[in-house]
């Protein structure tokens, strides 16, 4: 049975009407029209659907939209400030941290969320954090380089 759910995404209110089984990822994509959050596995391993929930990176495929009322959700669409890319986006661009771009929104949100919580992560911590998500194209090397570059700028 469908239920009204209020989501707050990137500072904007979305009143949607969904079944309880609608995952946060599907609700963002289908009901809020925010298709930047991608589904790579729907069982919480690949991390492509990573969004920030009250600042924490979470797998949006492992939460139901109905659970997320009154929480602050941030997605890849909210990273840039108008024309101005977020330092993390800019660093991925400059360091060639993406190829097909499918995993990219998840990596961006993961790294932004983690560095906002802990800006001074060292190399090992960064790698440990990034091991949460899968990329099939880049071999990760340039993703790490990008995150390091963005870290310097975000500090």
């Amino acid at each position: 049975m469908k239920t009204p759910v209020k989501l707050r995404v990137n500072g904007q209110a979305h009143e949607i009407f969904v079944e309880p089984r609608k995952t946060l990822a599907d609700a963002l994509r289908d009901d809020c029209g925010l298709t930047g959050t991608h589904l790579g596995c729907e069982h919480g391993v690949c991390g492509a659907c990573t969004v920030l929930l009250d600042g924490d990176p979470v797998r949006a495929c492992l939460m139901f939209a109905i659970q997320c009322q009154d929480m602050e959700i941030r997605t890849v669409e909210g990273l840039a400030d108008g024309e101005e890319l977020h330092p993390m986006q800019r660093a991925f661009w400059e360091k060639h941290g993406l190829q097909c771009g499918f995993c990219t929104p998840g990596f961006l949100m993961l790294a932004v969320g983690a560095l906002e919580r802990k800006p001074d992560m060292d190399e090992e911590e960064l790698k440990e954090m990034l091991s949460s998500n899968l990329c099939r194209c880049t071999g990760y090397q340039n993703i790490l380089a990008a995150v390091r570059a963005a870290q310097a700028e975000m500090q």
Partner: peptide, 24 residues
């Protein structure tokens, strides 16, 4: 030259268009 890719800005902004984005 190691030119930045023209493909990237839309992908970075979550404005890529993959088949599931069309299939709604």
């Amino acid at each position: 030259r190691r030119l930045r890719r023209v493909e990237d800005p839309s992908l970075l902004r979550g404005e890529g268009r993959f088949v599931a984005d069309v299939a709604r």
